[in-house]
Design a protein around this nucleic acid. Structure first.
Lengths: 122, 122
DNA sequence: ATACTGTACTAAGAAAACTAGTACAGTTTC
DNA sequence: GAAACTGTACTAGTTTTCTTAGTACAGTAT
């Protein structure tokens, strides 16, 4: 499925959350699509099932998947979750831009940033 | 000087680094200005001196201060450090924008984000 | 001299992340 | 119905990171 970066200071369960959130939001994993089972993903990532469970639990809280005991976990894609995530990303960007403004960054450089991958949607 | 957020999952030494980096970059702490001593800051934040030492050591590695044994620590503001930090922030923003593009964010919303506090420089 | 400075070091505590193993109830497959 | 799945809950223990505590030393300022 994908690999982990053990040099990353970010916890494994966070890396897993980030990966799946991205995959679901981008549509690579479609709404209603089956997620790998807790045990199989744990096995293929050589990680403890509890760690996967934590990632899935938190993704479910965020609204990006639905776990049904006995059946499995499926990806969901609610407007609420998207809106929430959107605001989160906006906050981060605002904070970064605020710092950048003190680093003699021109308006053009910032605009450039927006246009860089304007057409890349995969 | 400032206060810490103990609910924040971010380590104390990271919070301290972030605060001072911002203060130095924004010019609130000027180039060459004296930083609080390791012990006095530790005392006023009710934190162990080792924690401050770690924050200062890493800020020095980033190029935002200079520590001289016996004398103290002073803020520095090198072009290299700024450039490095700038690129770091750019990477983060790019990553966030890439995710936002999958969240049905309009070009206008992104432009709005850039212009929001265009005149706020404090 | 005294009181500062940064730095280095060891030891221990506390918290977070991760692993290991077991168990249970529900679902799917045959 | 049996076997093999599924998610979930739980306890226990390990590992890693963060933080504290305390001591020591050399250089600087007053």
């Amino acid at each position: 499925m994908f690999s982990l970066d053990y040099r990353d200071s970010k916890p494994i369960y966070e890396q897993i959350k980030d990966r799946f959130r991205t995959l679901i939001i981008s549509g690579v994993i479609e709404e209603g699509e089956r997620m790998p089972s807790v045990r199989s993903l744990a096995s293929s990532l050589s990680v403890n099932p509890n760690t996967i469970q934590r990632a899935y639990r938190e993704l479910e809280q965020e609204g990006y998947l639905l776990s049904i005991p006995g059946k499995g976990s499926i990806a969901t894609h609610s407007k609420e979750a998207d809106q929430h995530r959107k605001e989160e990303l906006f906050r981060e960007i605002r904070k970064n831009i605020r710092e950048l403004r003190n680093l003699s960054v021109t308006e053009d450089e910032l605009l450039q940033l927006l246009k860089e991958d304007e057409t890349v949607h995969d």
